[in-house]
Design a protein around this nucleic acid. Structure first.
Lengths: 224, 224
DNA sequence: TATCTAATTTTGAGGTTTCAAAATACGCCC
DNA sequence: GGGCGTATTTTGAAACCTCAAAATTAGATA
């Protein structure tokens, strides 16, 4: 049984790999891992060595790490717990979608497999959590993404926000305040690559300007 | 913020004091504490010293420990989380009352105050958990017991099971199997102090014989 | 090629929680 | 009061996770 620290490292590495586009050759650097885990680099190195010993990941000194199949399964198990918890907190206890990430972070390590499965059934087997993140199945199966980030779509199409790729509370509060939440319909009105700005219309006459770094954290799909 | 280990020690000491009748002069011995925490005695001693340093408890070498007011508050906070979780798991996720203790044990340390309060409201502010244990209020207030243990009531009265003073899975399964669960009506038919046996009738003609140690773990109140 | 820089690894250390086993103290019995 | 048995405490060690700071390495620069 991995400790919660181990679970958190696996999760962090999985998500970093995922953000990198997931290609198999994507080694995660110690610096990035340490940054994500909020520890000093030396801590990441020594922790990674121990994770390597237990075969959670491959480790190439001075290059980085990549999860093994075992590590991937471990990460997906935690992610499943995390995302089902988020869904549960929003749907059952009526928490705001902007605040559930932190609560789920605390609870996920104490949740047994049996209990997640119950919650999953109770919720009717949702496919995504309140941020639009896909929920892995009991065996770790996870849906491939078909969405694109808001900085990569052409102008004119009618789109719907599918996923927010960031769990930062204040950032999510800001988005909610701007009316940019999962499910929101929008049209890209103007892209200004040189200014690194995208302008979207969320209702007739209501426009929002977003910088590239923000647009890259919003995934959209064609509106149904 | 106390670690989960600290929380578990506080809880164990509180419950041991409670079982002792709660008199202020009831010092808990290292042996009993170590037994309850399933650690060797030396571990209890060194842990207790550190809890003493942080003012969770009073410690008299070779005598034992007693919670300070601060320690008591800490213990009641955990107990509140534990018992509300149990209630929630039974009522919302339909787990069996005999199996929720272990799950709550794992989840309680990650539950924030905010979330317990939400769950409490969602449940309609229950006074007792599925085992009949009283649920401390947000400020730590806890109802005094008015019930008696089954080995101490006179024959003849119509009673109702109010509380089971043990969280052991197999034991609870046994009780459930015997039809002895919180809420069950019964009448004490015969007490045989010398044989250390109590005989109760749970429905016309349906009797159960219980040894003193088991009867002492079942609290009853007059049936309404 | 020599040097500089930035990232990484190593080293030494500390906090928390645990164990095994040796040392010590307490209360009881004679 | 001396000795005995049991409970408790002490000691030394280990696992896990972390930091600070020094040493090393790879790669870029000159």
């Amino acid at each position: 049984m991995p400790s919660s620290t181990v679970e958190n490292y696996l999760k962090a590495i999985y998500l970093l790999e995922d953000e990198r586009g997931g290609g198999a050759g994507a080694w995660i650097s110690m610096g990035d891992l340490a940054g994500r885990m909020r520890v000093v680099p030396g801590t990441a190195t020594s922790m990674v060595k121990s994770l390597h010993r237990e075969k959670w990941l491959d480790y190439r000194p001075r290059t980085g790490v990549a999860l093994t199949e075992r590590g991937r399964r471990g990460a997906l198990k935690v992610l499943r717990k995390h995302r089902i918890l988020e869904m549960f907190l929003v749907r059952v206890l009526d928490l705001d979608w902007t605040e559930v990430h932190e609560e789920a972070e605390l609870l996920e390590h104490g949740l047994t497999d049996k209990l997640v499965d119950r919650m999953d059934a109770f919720l009717g087997y949702p496919e995504v959590d309140p941020h639009g993140d896909p929920i892995p199945g009991p065996g770790g199966a996870i849906k491939e993404r078909t969405t694109r980030t808001l900085d990569q779509v052409e102008e004119g199409q009618i789109l719907e926000i599918a996923q927010i790729l960031k769990q930062d509370g204040p950032f999510l509060d800001f988005l909610q305040d701007q009316g940019l939440v999962p499910g929101t319909r929008l049209v890209v009105r103007e892209r200004q690559p040189l200014a690194d700005v995208v302008e979207v219309e969320i209702s007739p006459g209501e426009n929002r300007s977003l910088g590239g770094s923000v647009a890259a954290r919003i995934r959209v799909k064609p509106a149904p």
